[in-house]
Computed example of a mutant assay.
Amino acid sequence: MSDRHVFEYALLRVVPRVERGECVNAGVLVYCRPKTFVAARTHLDEARLLALDPAADLPGVRAALRAVEGVCAGGEAAGQAARDDAGRRFRWLIAPRSTIVQPGPVHTGLTADPAAEAERLLDLLVR
């Protein structure tokens, strides 16, 4: 039996001006049902964001990214989502929205270590 499990992931994108359609990758959400794992890893390149929109609300974007991390972590930081299982929290976070921090499309893969996969994807797709 393989030690690798199916996982899903989505990028977190910062869209400072929706009308322009430009975005900056700022994080990744990873969900692995067999491991009951959900996590967000974020990294905001502030210079890149400010190049798209010099008036971008940096504190607001940082707060929104921290909120996503909190929902993934569960506990008190997740607010009402704390009672939800990992899968429901992931599905709620990947739902389309028109806020400045938006999820991208969901992709799948195989991994033996979802936490390491989250770091790998952050390095590959965001940093």
Rank of each mutant, 00 (worst) to 15 (best):
M1R: 11
D3T: 15
D3N: 14
R4W: 14
V6G: 02
F7I: 10
F7E: 01
E8S: 10
Y9N: 11
Y9V: 00
A10D: 13
L12Q: 01
V15F: 01
P16F: 02
R17I: 09
V18Y: 05
E19Y: 13
R20K: 05
G21I: 09
E22Y: 10
E22S: 01
E22A: 03
A26Y: 11
G27K: 05
G27I: 05
V28M: 01
V28C: 09
V28E: 02
L29Q: 14
L29E: 01
L29I: 15
V30F: 07
V30M: 02
V30K: 13
C32N: 03
C32I: 07
R33A: 10
P34F: 04
P34I: 01
T36P: 00
F37V: 05
V38L: 08
V38I: 15
A40C: 12
A40N: 02
R41N: 09
R41I: 07
T42E: 15
T42V: 09
T42F: 09
T42Q: 14
H43F: 13
H43L: 10
L44C: 07
L44H: 00
D45N: 14
D45R: 06
A47N: 08
R48G: 05
L52K: 04
L52M: 01
D53S: 07
P54V: 10
A55H: 12
D57W: 13
P59D: 11
P59Y: 04
G60S: 02
G60F: 09
G60H: 03
R62Q: 15
R62W: 00
A63S: 10
A63C: 04
A63V: 02
A64R: 14
A67R: 07
V68Q: 04
G70R: 12
V71E: 08
C72D: 07
C72I: 14
A73L: 10
A73R: 15
A73Y: 00
G74T: 10
E76K: 09
A78F: 00
Q80A: 14
Q80I: 07
A81C: 05
R83W: 13
D84F: 15
D85Y: 11
D85A: 05
A86D: 08
A86H: 08
G87F: 01
R88Y: 11
R88V: 14
R89T: 03
R89S: 06
R89L: 03
R91C: 00
R91I: 06
W92E: 10
I94C: 04
A95T: 06
P96C: 06
P96L: 15
R97C: 07
T99K: 11
I100N: 07
I100Y: 02
V101I: 00
V101A: 07
Q102Y: 01
G104M: 11
V106R: 15
V106A: 02
H107R: 15
T108M: 14
G109W: 14
L110H: 09
T111G: 12
T111K: 06
A112E: 08
D113H: 09
P114G: 03
P114R: 14
P114V: 10
A115N: 15
A115W: 15
A116S: 09
A116N: 08
A118G: 07
R120I: 15
R120W: 01
R120M: 02
R120S: 12
L121A: 06
L122K: 06
D123V: 01
D123H: 12
L125Y: 10
V126F: 10
V126E: 12
V126Q: 04
